[in-house]
Nucleic acid binder design. Structure first.
Lengths: 333, 333
DNA sequence: TTGTACGCGTTATCAG
DNA sequence: CTGATAACGCGTACAA
């Protein structure tokens, strides 16, 4: 591998000049500029990033903490982050938590050792203690949810409002006995969705029965189990609203296994609009989140933070939309 | 951030001694060892990885090239790689190709600049030209498939044999008109599966009708479209074998949209056994691959390569299994 | 058992 | 417009 010294020697200039050429320093005389560039190409020289990083104390690397890459919802956001990062010559390091909190420590170490320029967390809670420890050392942006009691910039949709909207939609279809299946309520995101559901039903005068409000982790498996458990209670219901599509798909499966026809016997709604939602049978009514845009916005925000620029808004709230598909229908139709 | 110098000064020793303590050099006198360690803890000192890397010319970082993280099949393998890597103090960098070949160049650059210790590719083909260029510079392991004409160590199941087994299973259920839906045939993995299918049907004396053999990309969408196209041909069929679960799910959707009941009117089989397969309706019969083990094996292999150790086998072939679920049944039942 | 001193490949400052 | 040269933080011969 050719180094800057090799280039300097071959071009008959100093390393300083080569460095200037690399950085497009306009003070270099066009003639020398060209000759240096020729040598660079001839030797196929690429600057050693490690050395550069050591010198500049910048890594151009951002770590993205994600609860679980196996949920395509997160991969979609990562896609947005990554594309945007690449445009700005940043690299992203994906820290998958797998829902195993002990992995936090490992990444905390990694962050300490590896000089990371910034952090985007898609999971204020899985990595909560980690985030807390580092939010004063590093630029941090939280996406999809927010962390209570910490002033960390974030990018989300209005989960409360979205859940309210979906609940209202279901109620408009004459569903009054709606089962709400939630993810971990320690996460503000799920709490907001639950609150949205609760306030919507309350406003409609539907009395609260906690048997109808369930929660577990956010997996397909969890949705399946939660639904089964509710079915065991033998309470009447005509609709299920799961706070995540993965859970909704699990619930769908449990309902179908129990012999229910969707949407004839029961309407089902999800949240997130992951790719798969349109391919399950029946296609899932859900809340669409602008994943790519969330990722993009989060990175841009982080970029400003890293460059010590002023951020225009502390909290970006992006638009959601209700996507109606065949899994929901008017009650009794 | 404290540096090695700070520690040395505070402990009243040289930086060399501190370095020795960090590396557990047994030549350090226990007393000094302890006092240095105390200072390290007191100052909360962590070695600067950048400097260390620059010095040792090793990054302890492995890049994992993945066609598309949105397919949980890949995330499962990544999980295996990552867990194993972490145990050996390696970091992984995920290079998601998104099926966009132009992204290759970007990562090629990244590999050049960033001194990566090794590469695991889950996609010999999406990143084909990249792999070719670097397989002589860096330790490379290919998982899930192999690259023709290149002697690159790999870890796979026997795709051909697995597809044969699944086809035989379907034929045993009296299905003779089987639609085969494949991913990109440039990929050896899909070609092997297709060959397995073709040889199984040929052995059974089923005449070849190319109308029954289709291919596209490996997405849900693609499976959906391919199935639709076949349905338009109005040829008789009683089973569909898709060379990937995502495609199988797309096909399932298309069949159900066309009013077919699964498995009564048509059996459907997939390949990979992604988490979701058991949660679609009906649950999918499929070929199970030991994803975690594939990832683990691939990393261990790469580790040996990076350490210039002898690898015991050039090609690891792991076991698959046929998982039968409700999407398949005896013809006419 | 410990310290000295050089080099890894850059960038940035300062002088010319 | 260009060149010396000093860092960046660490590891490691070599010397003591």
């Amino acid at each position: 591998m050719a180094t800057i010294k090799d280039v300097a020697k071959a071009a008959g200039v100093s390393t300083a000049t080569v460095s200037r050429v690399i950085h497009n320093d306009s003070s270099v005389k066009p003639a020398t500029y060209k000759s240096v560039l020729d040598v660079i190409n001839k030797l196929n020289y690429t600057p050693n990033v490690l050395a550069r990083q050591l010198r500049t104390q910048k890594t151009k690397t951002v770590i993205v903490i994600v609860p679980n890459i196996r949920n395509t919802f997160f991969s979609d956001i990562i896609f947005g982050i990554e594309n945007c990062a690449r445009k700005h010559n940043y690299q992203i390091l994906i820290a998958d938590m797998h829902g195993q909190p002990d992995i936090e420590d490992y990444y905390y170490q990694a962050i300490q050792e590896r000089m990371i320029d910034g952090i985007i967390s898609l999971s204020a809670n899985v990595a909560k203690s980690l985030i807390e420890q580092i939010s004063d050392q590093y630029p941090v942006v939280v996406a999809c949810q927010y962390l209570e009691n910490y002033n960390i910039p974030n990018v989300t949709i209005d989960n409360n409002k979205a859940a309210t909207a979906m609940t209202e939609y279901l109620m408009k279809l004459n569903h009054n006995d709606i089962v709400f299946i939630s993810g971990p309520v320690e996460m503000t995101l799920y709490r907001d969705r639950m609150n949205g559901f609760l306030s919507a039903t309350a406003s409609a005068g539907i009395p609260l029965d906690l048997e109808y409000v369930r929660y577990g982790d956010a997996s397909v498996q969890s949705g399946y189990v939660q639904m089964k458990e509710f079915l065991d209670s033998r309470k009447p219901f005509s609709a299920v609203f799961a706070a995540g599509d993965m859970m909704a798909i699990g619930a769908l499966r449990a309902l179908q296994e129990a012999g229910l026809e969707i949407p004839k016997d029961c309407s089902v709604a999800g949240f997130d609009d992951i790719e798969l939602s349109q391919f399950v049978d029946p296609p899932l009514t859900t809340v669409h989140q602008p994943c790519y845009q969330i990722g993009e916005t989060a990175f841009k925000k982080l970029l400003k933070l890293m460059n010590k620029q002023q951020i225009e808004a502390f909290h970006n709230v992006l638009d959601f939309s209700i996507v109606t598909r065949d899994s929901s229908a008017k009650k009794g139709e």
